[in-house]
Nucleic acid binder design. Sequence first.
DNA 1: TTGTAAGCGTTATCAT
DNA 2: ATGATAACGCTTACAA
Lengths: 338, 338
Amino acid sequence: MTTMKDVAKATGLSLATVSRVFNGSEKVTEKTRKTVLKAAEKLNFRPNKMAAALRSGKSRTIGVVVPIIDIDVFSSAIKSIESYLREAGYHIIICQSEELLEKEGQILENLLNLQVDGVIISVSKETLNMNHMQELQDAGISIVLFDRRLELENVNSVIINNFSGAYRATTHLIEQGCRRILHLAGKSSVSIFRERQRGYESALKDHGLPVDEHYVFPLDLESEASLDHLRYLLQQDPAPDGIFAHGDYYAFGALNILKELNLRVPEDVAIIGFGDSPFCAYLTPPLSSVNQRNEDIGRMAAEIMLQELNEADHARVASQSMIPPEVIIRASSQRLTD
Amino acid sequence: MTTMKDVAKATGLSLATVSRVFNGSEKVTEKTRKTVLKAAEKLNFRPNKMAAALRSGKSRTIGVVVPIIDIDVFSSAIKSIESYLREAGYHIIICQSEELLEKEGQILENLLNLQVDGVIISVSKETLNMNHMQELQDAGISIVLFDRRLELENVNSVIINNFSGAYRATTHLIEQGCRRILHLAGKSSVSIFRERQRGYESALKDHGLPVDEHYVFPLDLESEASLDHLRYLLQQDPAPDGIFAHGDYYAFGALNILKELNLRVPEDVAIIGFGDSPFCAYLTPPLSSVNQRNEDIGRMAAEIMLQELNEADHARVASQSMIPPEVIIRASSQRLTD
DNA sequence: TTGTAAGCGTTATCAT
DNA sequence: ATGATAACGCTTACAA
């Protein structure tokens, strides 16, 4: 293996000068630069980044921690994090917590040992606070949370604006002429689901529509009784003419029931989901949904990370970014043909 | 930052002894082990893995290179590669080639500089040979190819058995009573598509069915003329009673045309795709498909990598693993109810 | 079993 | 602008 020392020897220059050439330091003559580069080329020299990292104290490595890699939101985010950080000369180490707090802790410890410069993380469902990240913070390692935020914690984070996504989706249905909109709600213990319900209710109010609590229904796809209740709701008079589901799977379930009841979509009932899962486009009819802009989340997380890393003043206040989602309109909710 | 030196000083022991404790070396008394561990705990010592890597020459880092992260096959493979290698004490650096040979080259060079112990890679579409990996090989870095193999190259690889997947899918259709099976073929310039066609033809022959070249049709979803030809084929007399598509998107396109022609699936025409994309389960009717076992591919790639790394004898012959795919039967091809 | 000391390949601080 | 040299934090002969 060729080292800088070898290049120095070959050129008759000093190790220090060779190093300067590869650091892009200004303090070298064009002539010596060329000499060094040529010799390096000939000797097939490659700079050992680990040695550089050890000596300089900066590894130019960012740890990226997610619950599971092959979930849409994470793989998309990782995709843009990778390309954005690589552009900036960083590389990323990927780790999966598998939704386990303990594993997440081990991973963070490991990343600390690996001397990462920063950590971009979407915390596990078990993670309720930043306790196990204290050491990272103490070590001055920049942290950016994404997709899932820890409430009450003062740390950089990037999430989508669930309220606004739900508000827009509901507004869209109203604009399509819906007046009795059912909300297939998520568990109220989960904050993002509460946000979605709030957005739904806000949109109704803002458009002068009544908020009927019977129209907020936490559908359970596994329970036949729950599905029966949905059937019941859909056959009332007056019947619902719109459905906003807190997740695409629930919209899909509702769609099947609508077909079963011979209700036309979107003529009788317009429907929109949340998440814009890849399968939405393949349903019959294609399902409108709220796109969470996963790639944008990743890009923004990476951007904030780079700012952190370049910030001389490390004491600046944490940024809490909310990305507004985008309503993707497909046939399931498209009534007007203007 | 606490170093081993500090721990040594605190315990009155030598740096070397402290190091031995953290290497799990047998040559330490239980007593000193405890002393060291306790002091380390108190000083909040964390071993600097980069320093260890530099000194020992083993980074315990594996580079994983894929064209794009958020494509199903890659994110699933990465998922299992990560969990398998982490188990073994390695961590992975993820890089995206974006299907560009040049970028792939830069990435490999970078990984070399980062002193990775091995590289698991699914090469870009532009990559036709191992030229740009020569340096890695020369440096003794283990390489495992997955999902896409380079023909004629003697290097470890893990791919699915496209022939057998197609053979099984076709056989399944035959078992369901199909006798005139259309094959929506892929570009014959791509080896895996040729393999799938070979499997289809072999299955027909082995079951005493004729191989009609008019029944092998390279559907182009973008071309109305091509779609028209499919309509034409489906309305011949006798009409095809089965379709095996080389990819799920093509099966999906065909499915829509079948609906349009009021042909019943699977009663009139049974259909099966290839890839088992997530959307298959959501189509109406749900689409049968050939599952490529992406996670298994990743796991096996990781396994082979670990073998390589632990192999004293580095000169062993390259392994070319072919994973048999699994036929996932759904309503689109399920005729018999036994 | 423990200690001594020489690196691993860089970067960075002084000199010159 | 270039050179000499001391780190960075650890592993590993070799010695004790």
